[in-house]
């Protein structure tokens, strides 16, 4: 079966069939379309106004690599100034290699890179130290619990450090789709209530966050990186257990095999879900220690650090489990800080 010719330029041989439209395109036409679509998302969604200083959360992985590359292409037209911000969680071996990839990228693209380390931000705690401290308490999962809370905070701090007005992350359509599947499978109504949007406007002093790749499928992100010959880091974090997300991910992959638009269809569903007012998170206040958004006295990051300092990290996480129904402050703080 010979490959059809590109439906756009009608000359080159098609290199892929686009999941969203079924259209067969050649590599260059696909890349152009991909970039134009990200531009469109940013413009139509009014995500990044001209003059914005944008902190790109760079992990060295495929999504943030593609995001940074595309935004760099579009920056002059959109009037953006880009800064790469990478977070060093302090995970021996894994993070060093990923950060090396980010450094190479920054150098090649000529973009300023700032690396913020957990160790410096959070009183000497690295993820490896946290992992040792939480060992024996259902390690993998609580590691990721800590890391997620702290990384969000670290990225925010890093963005402020470089004078950014906006934060962007590389979440793609598959990420959003997996999340909505997973939240249903584990009954997380509070998180469902806020999902779906393109980002958050930045209430309560937090920087506005957005995800310009939200409508791009994982497959297209990977193929874009391939056709543009982008060099990215693709190893699994040593602490990633991902047990439950694993189910959602596998399901999504199977759904996409049956109907290629599945990821985008799920994003549409997520955009439109309407939940009862009772499960929507309340308006947050400020953390009494750091001033960040919090629904309780301490924000999630401070509460976790507080628990670590007292040598009772488990308690810091465990507390929220006892909250009736509601998913606890981590989600509210998170909701408020940004709709991720």
């Amino acid at each position: 079966m010979p490959a059809p010719t590109c439906a756009s330029c009608h000359t080159a041989r098609a290199a892929l069939r686009r999941p969203r439209s079924g259209q067969a395109l050649c590599g260059p036409c696909f890349c152009t379309a991909f970039e134009a679509e990200v531009l469109h998302t940013v413009v139509a969604g009014r995500l990044l106004p001209p003059g914005a200083v944008v902190a790109v959360g760079a992990s060295g992985g495929k999504d943030s690599t593609v995001l940074a590359h595309v935004l760099r292409e579009l920056a002059p037209r959109l009037g953006l100034t880009l800064r790469l911000v990478a977070v060093d969680e302090g995970i021996g071996g894994y993070r060093d290699a990923a950060l090396a990839a980010v450094r190479r990228q920054a150098e090649r693209w000529g973009l300023p890179l700032t690396i913020v380390a957990y160790e410096d931000l959070f009183g000497g705690w690295t993820m490896d130290a946290v992992a040792r401290s939480t060992a024996g308490t259902g390690r993998g999962r609580s590691c990721c619990t800590f890391c997620g809370v702290l990384r969000r905070r670290a990225l925010e701090e890093g963005a402020r450090l470089v004078g950014a007005t906006h934060v962007v992350t590389g979440h793609n359509a598959d990420d959003v789709a997996e999340t909505v599947l997973m939240n249903f499978l584990r009954g997380d109504a509070a998180r469902l209530a806020r999902g779906g949007g393109l980002g958050s406007a930045g209430e309560g002093g937090a920087l506005p966050r957005c995800r310009p790749l939200q409508f791009a499928s994982q497959k297209e992100v990977v193929l874009y990186a391939h056709f543009r010959r982008l060099d990215y880091f693709s190893e699994e974090c040593v602490y990633a257990p991902r047990a439950f997300r694993g189910h959602a991910r596998e399901l999504l992959k199977r759904l996409e095999a049956v109907r290629p638009t599945a990821a985008l269809d799920l994003v549409h569903s997520a955009e439109r879900l309407a939940l009862a007012p009772a499960v929507r998170p309340p308006r947050p206040g400020a953390c009494s220690r750091c001033g960040a958004l919090a629904s309780r006295a301490l924000c999630q990051a401070c509460a976790l650090l507080d628990g670590l300092a007292r040598g009772r990290p488990r308690l810091a996480i465990g507390e929220h489990k006892h909250e009736p129904r509601d998913e606890g402050p981590r989600s509210r703080a998170q909701a408020a800080a940004a709709a991720f």
Binding site: S59, G61, K62, D63, S64, R141, C144, T145, F146, C147, G148, V149, R151, R152, T169, G170, H171, N172, D175, E178, T179, M182, R186, D188, R191, C237, A240, R242, A243, F244, R245, I317, H320, K321, E327, G328, R330, S331, Q334, F340
Partner: peptide, 11 residues
């Protein structure tokens, strides 16, 4: 990409 940013809730 690493998803823990959004799903660090305990199942």
């Amino acid at each position: 990409m690493c998803q823990v940013g959004e799903d660090y809730a305990e199942p």
